[in-house]
């Protein structure tokens, strides 16, 4: 499990970074071509959609690394079993939220799968919407792995106290 989560984290970060590079390069292309008097119509749309993918993948990795900002004054005050219990509650809240987002995301993907991009009608909007269930799904995996760690901590905490 641990190795799987590590690999997932790494792959997702790389995928996000590649999308970041894509939109960066596309914007540069847009500036250059415009000043050369050539108009490439798809640059803005490709940039926007790569950006969405990059951010959603990055957000998910940040769940694994516990970087999303939270107020930790209660967590800092509670130690041992109480602290572990609070962490478990938070993990469960994140899992529950992401299960709902995952299911709703699937609904959105199926509703809008066949919508097309404005500038490249051959491309489907489904390719963009699917980032939502992927994000929520991976967030569930990360939160579950945290949950398992906190359960272990709780058990060992109870044994030692």
């Amino acid at each position: 499990m641990k190795r799987f989560v590590q690999a997932l984290d790494k792959i997702q970060m790389i995928v996000g970074s590649i999308f970041l590079c894509i939109f960066f390069l596309v914007i540069i292309l847009q500036i250059v071509t415009r000043h050369l008097g050539i108009s490439i119509i798809w640059t803005e749309e490709v940039a926007n959609y790569s950006f969405i993918w990059a951010i959603l993948m990055g957000s998910s990795v940040m769940v694994n690394r516990r970087e999303h900002f939270n107020f930790d004054f209660i967590q800092r005050k509670l130690t041992g079993a109480k602290g572990a219990t609070l962490n478990i509650v938070i993990d469960l809240i994140l899992v529950a939220f992401n299960i709902v987002i995952f299911l709703l995301g699937i609904q959105v993907v199926t509703e809008f799968w066949n919508y097309t991009w404005a500038t490249i009608p051959e491309m489907k909007m489904g390719y963009i919407w699917i980032a939502i269930p992927i994000m929520a799904g991976t967030m569930i995996v990360y939160s579950l792995s945290h949950l398992m760690n906190h359960m272990k901590a709780l058990k060992s905490g109870e044994v030692s106290s």
């Binding site: 066949n114 919508y115 097309t116 991009w117 404005a118 009608p121 909007m125």
Partner: peptide, 10 residues
């Protein structure tokens, strides 16, 4: 019409 087109109804 432009936005309707994107729903797949060309």
């Amino acid at each position: 019409p432009g936005f309707m087109t994107q729903t797949g109804i060309k």
